[in-house]
């Protein structure tokens, strides 16, 4: 892969989900994260010439995403913010290790989702595909809201563990 634009496109594609996850962490909701990701993509595209193949694309893209997030928050009313600026900065400073290939991660997630018991998979799908609030899910299932939160949290934990172990399988 010697063509710089090819490398750039590969990296940008590869980093989409992780950038989304990063922005989601900073902003706390998928809609804002998506908007800011699109802004970020445009900025990265415009700055493509500044990118040197072989350097850390992720770090560069994250920094760019962070500034876009700050700009986005400045334009918003204060009460929509999840984080104060200093906590946002802490998140920006701490770079999680991105040792895994994006497509492997995606594959691992799908595999792990497939392993969930039907009932749990349905819960996850209702929560994420249909975007039904926890409160509603709890009511539909005749559970307390706190119990439903806990259940979703546990499923996410289980998924996370499963994904980590799959990724280790793939890289070992």
């Amino acid at each position: 892969m010697t063509d710089p634009s090819e490398e750039f496109l590969y990296q940008l594609t590869d980093w989409q989900n992780r950038l989304f996850g990063y922005l989601f962490t900073l902003l706390g909701n998928p809609h804002d994260a998506r908007d800011v990701l699109q802004e970020t993509n445009l900025v990265l595209w415009r700055k493509m010439n500044e990118f040197e193949p072989g350097t850390d694309f992720g770090a560069w893209a994250r920094k760019c995403a962070y500034f876009q997030a700050l700009a986005f928050l400045r334009d918003r009313k204060r009460d929509r913010h999840v984080f104060s600026d200093d906590v946002l900065a802490l998140f920006a400073e701490e770079t999680p290790s991105a040792a895994y290939d994006e497509s492997e991660l995606s594959l691992a997630l799908r595999d792990c989702l497939g392993q969930l018991p039907e009932r749990q998979r349905q819960l996850i799908s209702r929560r994420y595909r249909d975007e039904i609030p926890v409160r509603q899910l709890a009511a539909d299932n005749g559970k307390k809201e706190s119990a439903m939160k806990m259940m979703l949290m546990r499923i996410r934990e289980a998924l996370h563990t499963c994904i980590e172990s799959k990724l280790q399988e793939m890289t070992s």
Binding site: N17, Y22, T25, A33, V87, P96, L109, Y128, L159
Partner: peptide, 30 residues
């Protein structure tokens, strides 16, 4: 939330882990 995350790098890691998975699930479905 800000207090907890400001004080503890471990809490930030935990928060990040959860949010990233949530984001990924969101992407996968939506």
């Amino acid at each position: 939330l800000n207090d907890v995350l400001r004080e503890s790098p471990e809490a930030r890691r935990f928060y990040r882990k959860h949010m990233e998975l949530h984001a990924r699930l969101h992407l996968d479905y939506v």
